[in-house]
Design a protein around this nucleic acid. Structure first.
Length: 506
RNA sequence: GCCGCAUUCGUCUAGAGGCCCAGGACACCGCCCUCUCAAGGCGGAGAUCAUCGGUUCGAAUCCGAUAUGCGGUACCA
């Protein structure tokens, strides 16, 4: 164990972080890692830090950064310390929180390692390195840096520098066993010999690399618990070595199980939908996504499963996190989403539905937007029919169009013929027309229409289906009488007239 | 290849030696409710707890080996 102690030994509240790399849109896996860090921080009264790891300049972009920050905000995973965004100043005592703005800190740390000969400049060219790798491959031996530049004298280094060659900085891994106690996995040991030799911490162009920056920053930001995906487990010994070399206390590590594609490989864009924004776009709501993600790799130990983020915070326990990976099951997410949609307050639901209804109009699928009053009246019958907010158009779009498509073939219920359909619709039309214009309500409509079916010897299902198709153009809709009321007396009668015309012409 | 990690119904999971010939949820099937579609209620099917061996009076739970899977092995993160 370490003589320097551990960052988590302190009596202070935990400090955790999410350190996304803006090289792609917010990924489900990143969101889950952020969530677990957030849950741990909030449960323990600790601090949640956001740090942007943007040293991969070739792949990083502002657009991705925005997508990630927006996504985290949308999920409600607000950080206590983080970079300046949209004109707002950085928050927290360890600014800046963007790695590209912390370059001097890495340079200083690198200089210390170099001065102590714990790191050395390596002048090997990519070609040389490739050749080494090929030789090792053929010899069936594990790939590792051969150490060509490990023992260069000052003169030899100077000679190479004089040739104009810029060295990358390699960290000496030494020998021995590295061990650490992972909060979720227990003790993990790795022989340094399996680390692949001395690894590069600063590229020849001066840019520091991930394994190095992560350690420098986690130490500088006093991170006590590094909670991240299992894909970093094998690299953790490198970090431990670096913490020790730099004389920093080691944080505790907690490696979360991976989120998997259906084929049980690490969740990837190629095989799954991985961008949080894609889930937002089709109408998943934050409560459901957070609830679902929390339950991938963790459970309360009880049979509760529909939990708000605050309830999850209360119950969260890092030590109860699983070791095995979890397949992302979209159907279960959809079920949870429906559960949460049904739990939203009416006004809240209306607000969240708005953008999706507007999108329907933009797409030309509806002709106008409903008022808040109309929407509110509709909620009781649509809310349990919405697996996602984006389903609203399919479900109720027929209300906001000038006319619906009429297909005589579906207009006629299976047990009926065209003549009966005409007869039925005409009779229904007068029955509906007979209901007062002033009070036009569902329970005024139902009795006379049922009576009509009975006196004519029709199955109510058939009569109702003919009306349904005539006024909505579809066979699956919210309950008929609520639908008629929502449509209004005049438009209902008009649509029935249209249907009658279509039947006459057919 | 090497190293590491993992392994309970198709999927997410409960389970920390006897309460388990394994419980819940999603999905699936059936019934009920019902004007369609949902929602809801009830019920069903679905796991020899990866395998083998050991410890123990007793193992999904402890130990070992094996198998399989995944992850890592970059001058990416």
């Amino acid at each position: 164990m370490t003589a320097t102690g551990s960052a988590s030994d302190s009596a202070h509240a935990p400090r955790v972080r999410i350190a996304p790399s803006p090289t792609g849109p917010l990924h489900i896996g990143t969101a889950r890692t952020a969530l677990f860090n957030y849950l741990y921080a909030r449960h323990t009264g600790g601090t949640f830090v956001l740090r942007l790891e943007d040293t991969d300049q070739a792949r990083s972009s502002i657009a991705y950064e925005k997508d990630i920050l927006d996504g985290l905000h949308w999920l409600g995973l607000n950080w206590d310390e983080g970079p300046e965004v949209a004109g707002e100043a950085a928050r927290g005592p360890h600014a800046p929180y963007r790695q590209m703005q912390r370059l001097p800190k890495y340079a200083a740390a690198a200089a210390r390692l170099l001065a102590a000969d714990m790191a050395y400049p390596c002048y090997c060219t990519p070609d040389e390195l490739d050749a080494d790798r090929r030789v090792q491959e053929e010899a069936r031996t594990p790939p590792r840096y051969v150490g060509r530049c490990a023992q260069l004298t000052a003169d030899e280094r100077a000679a190479r520098e004089a040739e104009g060659r810029r060295g990358a900085l390699r960290f000496r891994v030494g020998t021995g066993l590295v061990a650490f106690d992972d909060v979720v996995r227990g003790r993990v040991e790795i022989d340094v010999a399996n680390l692949g030799g001395d690894f590069v911490i600063v590229r020849a162009d001066g840019l520091p690399l991930y394994h190095f920056t992560v350690v420098v920053d986690d130490a500088a930001m006093e991170i006590s618990h590094v909670i991240r995906g299992e894909d970093h487990l094998s690299n953790t010994p490198k970090h431990v070595l670096l913490f020790r070399a730099l004389g920093y206390p080691e944080p505790r590590f907690a490696h979360l199980p991976l989120i998997l594609n259906p084929d049980r490989t690490k969740m990837s864009k190629r095989k799954s939908q991985t961008a949080v924004s894609d889930y937002i776009a089709v109408g998943f709501i934050r409560e459901a996504l957070v609830n679902y993600l929390a339950l991938l790799g963790w459970a309360t130990g009880t049979e509760e499963e529909i939990l708000s983020i605050d309830e999850i915070v209360e119950r969260f326990d890092l030590e109860a996190v699983h070791k095995g990976g979890a397949v992302f099951d979209r159907e279960r997410l959809e079920w949870l989403n429906g559960q949460w949609i049904r739990r939203l307050e009416p006004d809240d639901l209306i607000d969240r539905l708005r953008p999706f209804i507007e999108a329907e109009q933009v797409a030309g699928r509806i002709d106008w937007l409903p008022s808040d009053g109309e929407l509110r009246a509709l909620l009781p019958v649509v809310r349990e029919r919405l697996p996602t907010l984006g389903a609203i158009g399919e479900l109720a779009g027929f209300l906001w169009v000038r006319s619906v498509p009429i297909d005589p073939a579906v207009l006629v219920p299976k047990r009926w013929d065209a003549a009966t359909a005409r007869d039925g619709l005409a009779a229904a039309r007068s029955t509906i027309a007979a209901v007062g214009e002033v009070t036009f309500e569902a329970d005024e409509l139902e009795p006379p229409l049922r009576a009509l079916a009975e006196t004519r010897g029709w199955k109510v299902g058939d009569l109702f289906m003919a009306i349904r198709v005539a006024i909505t153009g579809r066979t699956a809709t919210p309950p008929l009488f609520d639908t008629i009321v929502a449509l209004g007396r005049d438009r209902t009668l008009e649509r029935i007239d249209r249907a009658l015309e279509a039947l006459a012409n057919a």
